[in-house]
Design a protein around this nucleic acid. Sequence first.
DNA 1: TTGAAAGCGCTAACAT
DNA 2: ATGTTAGCGCTTTCAA
Lengths: 355, 355
Amino acid sequence: MVTRKKVALRAGVSVSVVSRAMNNSGYVEAEKKKRILAIAEELGYYPHPVAEALQKRRTKQILFFCKDLKNSFYIDMYRGMVEAAGKRDYMVVFNGSMDFEKIRNAMIDGIIMPNEGITQHYLDTVGRNYRLPVVSASYGNAEGFSRAVPRVEIDMVRVMELAVRALRENGHRRIALGMPYPFSSMDARRLSFCSLMKEVYGDRLKEYYIGVHREDMAGDSRILSFLEDERREDGMQLMEEDFFGKGELAARLFAERRLDATAVVAFNDEFALGMCKAFHSMGLRVPEDISIIGIDGSSARKYMDPLLTSVGLFPEKQGAKCADILLDMLEGKKVKYVSGSPVQLVKGASVRKIR
Amino acid sequence: MVTRKKVALRAGVSVSVVSRAMNNSGYVEAEKKKRILAIAEELGYYPHPVAEALQKRRTKQILFFCKDLKNSFYIDMYRGMVEAAGKRDYMVVFNGSMDFEKIRNAMIDGIIMPNEGITQHYLDTVGRNYRLPVVSASYGNAEGFSRAVPRVEIDMVRVMELAVRALRENGHRRIALGMPYPFSSMDARRLSFCSLMKEVYGDRLKEYYIGVHREDMAGDSRILSFLEDERREDGMQLMEEDFFGKGELAARLFAERRLDATAVVAFNDEFALGMCKAFHSMGLRVPEDISIIGIDGSSARKYMDPLLTSVGLFPEKQGAKCADILLDMLEGKKVKYVSGSPVQLVKGASVRKIR
DNA sequence: TTGAAAGCGCTAACAT
DNA sequence: ATGTTAGCGCTTTCAA
């Protein structure tokens, strides 16, 4: 292996001069520097990243603590942070397990958490006696945690408003909400939906909430796999959720209830795609018979026929911002406690104009 | 920061005893060991991964040198390797750029390459004076490179045979091939298709090859984005390809040619989904009017209506095998020069039985 | 402007 | 069974 020592020996100087030459810091005679650089080049010298990391106490790596690589939303977030971090010469690693202990064995300078739940859990456990900078993605459910953890928030209240407004502008009054959780969940989407629709529905509000969860699925042959989905450990989502499958079920529930809704807002695009496919198999056409709007603005939108209208969440931007904020923290800059990430309606053809 | 030194001080022993206690290697009195471990626990001591990496010259990280995180095939490969590596206490990092130089600044013990093209390019450039163990995924185009690089190969000849056989067993005789490359490309799929079909088609073979590429797209408004797609640098694919979009175009080309084919084998599932959507918009039904079979067995299959029949390539397995082989190399075991990764027909509903 | 030396946190050969 | 010591490859005072 070619080390600084070898280069120094060859150049007839000491390692510290070589060091200074490489980092161009401190004094070193111009001529000498050129010669040293030339020799380094010739010898094929590259600084040893591990040694540098040990000395500088900077690994130039941050961790995205997320297991769910099946979920395209998180993949996009990851892509965003990889790109942002790359620009600042950082790598983003990914451990692929939900084992907090592993964090402590990883060569990282900071952590990005994919959502509030995991952040909170982390803070309550390992985080208590392990201080590494953390940034969290967030979706309006971050009441609990301290400002020690800056977050990049997507305003789900606003998202739901955009979805409902898009439908109302097209004449829809009766709107259902398809969700993978029971009504009791405190998901910001549900909350926002309720406050937007309560004056329309009054007491019947709950009927328009299509929640796919255990109780609704008794007797369904898929119940087992869903039970798996719902298994959590320490309040943390461990399994990847099959939103598409849940969407299909939601469509069935919707049909069974014989609602007068002309449109449905889906939990996310996967869920919407599942609903659409199931509607189709039941002979319901989208958007002629029922309009659908998704949430995410994912690239999977295009698989749907008609193209899915959705509220874009731009997870890449959110991921990029998380990375940038984390790196700012590492550089000692002070950062905002909460920053927002933009959302915007992404038009498709799955919403019909009525009346 | 809690170091071994502190633990040693507190326990009234020397660092090396602590070291031995932690790694349970070498001698250390049972009682003492227990006490040391207790103290470490109490102090919240964790070994410093960077220091260990420097000393042992093992970073416990391997690199997946792949930029294209938009492609679900590579994501699945990545998931497979993350899981396999995780079991052996390794992390898989991802740099997100195609900059070979960055490899040299990364804390890694080895590299997994996503395909032969990139491997070859790497060997021809940085690899020449930088020796890190490499394993490559491969698809039957690895003539060139030496056995210094073991590969995990998916037998695309076999894949095409499975696809064609599945169609023939359902009575299809006239089969087209939809590809995102010109006929001249040496893709193993094309080669295999040709050798399987030449006796059926004779001179007309080329007509049944639907190659979406520049020449075919003159006048198409999408030409610009495709030109982008086709831009390569140093023989290496830099842009993410829009297989779905190419599939849509392929369906149009197919219709224009008025072929008598009853079925089409698509380059991959994305391509197949694109074809299906376009067929649908032209009033052609799948599989009533035309059967489609994809390649990949990706989870995106489910978005299609009807569910896409495909040849499963199980990229997760391929990725896992790449990781295992690479780690075997790092452990000094000797490994096979080429190993295979299984493929298998994955049934759907996009192939109709005819006659 | 240069070089010697200490040290980042850990391991392992060697002496005790 | 334990401690001393010499590194791993690099940076950074500090003295020359």
